[in-house]
């Protein structure tokens, strides 16, 4: 019964986000940036759609989400609570999953206020629900992938700042890689195109639900969490 062990870890981790001011600060920064970037150009385009919001989301997530996850493992290693936690009857996998779902749930909470954009735009004009629903689903998968990467980065070091920088670097590369493709030889184009998180996310955000895009995000999550568990086991 892994759920029995993962759930208490998830609950503790999720709860601890909200006892410190960090959660509120991160959510505020996210909403201010997203709101400003989106609405500053929204009325110029004069289109009742959220496409611009979803277009900038990967870039925002690339540094907001590593900030959310940076302490998850690094801080435990630093304070020593890692030892207290792992000598309870839990496995490393339980811990990684608990923390991952806590981070993902936190990202979902962070996205909830942005549903207000969709609602208010629906009042302004004729909003096509497909891309909006797709966009929010895609945003959750994107957040999951970046959170997994962030946890991996956090498991590498005791220092939260270093964890944040590593996490952001990986997320940025995945976000921007398909915009750097013209540097690369043609033979490698397809591979690097597939590596880019942005393209997969934009596909889903168009309302096109292709299994390959979901598969991409799910594999990033699995791989990152697997590497995180590996690095946590190798800490000794």
């Amino acid at each position: 019964m892994t759920v029995k062990r993962v759930y208490p870890i998830f609950k503790r981790e999720f709860g601890s986000y909200f006892v410190s001011p960090v959660a509120y600060i991160v959510i505020s920064i996210f909403l201010i940036l997203a709101g400003w970037f989106f609405f500053s150009t929204f009325f110029l385009y004069n289109q009742a759609e959220l496409r611009n919001f979803f277009a900038l989301l990967p870039l925002l997530f690339a540094f907001i989400i590593p900030a959310i996850t940076m302490g998850l493992v690094a801080d435990e290693l630093n304070v020593g609570t890692y030892e207290t936690l792992l000598t309870l009857p839990v496995t490393v996998t339980d811990v990684v999953l608990g923390k991952f779902f806590a981070a993902l749930a936190f990202c979902a909470i962070m996205l909830v206020p942005t549903l207000a954009y969709a609602v208010s735009i629906a009042f302004l004009g004729d909003l096509d629900p497909g891309p909006v629903i797709g966009g929010f689903i895609g945003a959750l998968f994107l957040a999951g992938a970046f959170a997994a990467i962030g946890i991996f980065a956090s498991s590498l070091t005791k220092n939260q700042i270093i964890a944040f920088i590593i996490g952001t670097a990986i997320c940025f590369v995945l976000t921007l890689i398909d915009k750097m493709l013209f540097f690369l030889p043609d033979s490698m184009l397809g591979f690097f195109q597939y590596m880019g998180a942005d393209r997969h996310f934009q596909n889903i955000a168009k309302g096109v639900l292709d299994s390959r895009d979901f598969l991409y995000f799910i594999s990033v999550m699995f791989l990152s969490l697997y590497l995180a568990a590996l690095s946590m086991r190798e800490k000794f």
């Binding site: 208490p8 601890s16 609570t81 890692y82 030892e83």
Partner: peptide
């Protein structure tokens, strides 16, 4: 109990012990 009792600093004692109870099943 590890040396110097590393515990989650910002949790309340009651919450912490309840969580441990949950993890301990």
């Amino acid at each position: 109990l590890p040396e110097s009792a590393p515990l989650y600093q910002n949790m309340l004692v009651y919450d912490y012990l309840m969580d441990v109870a949950a993890i301990r099943g």
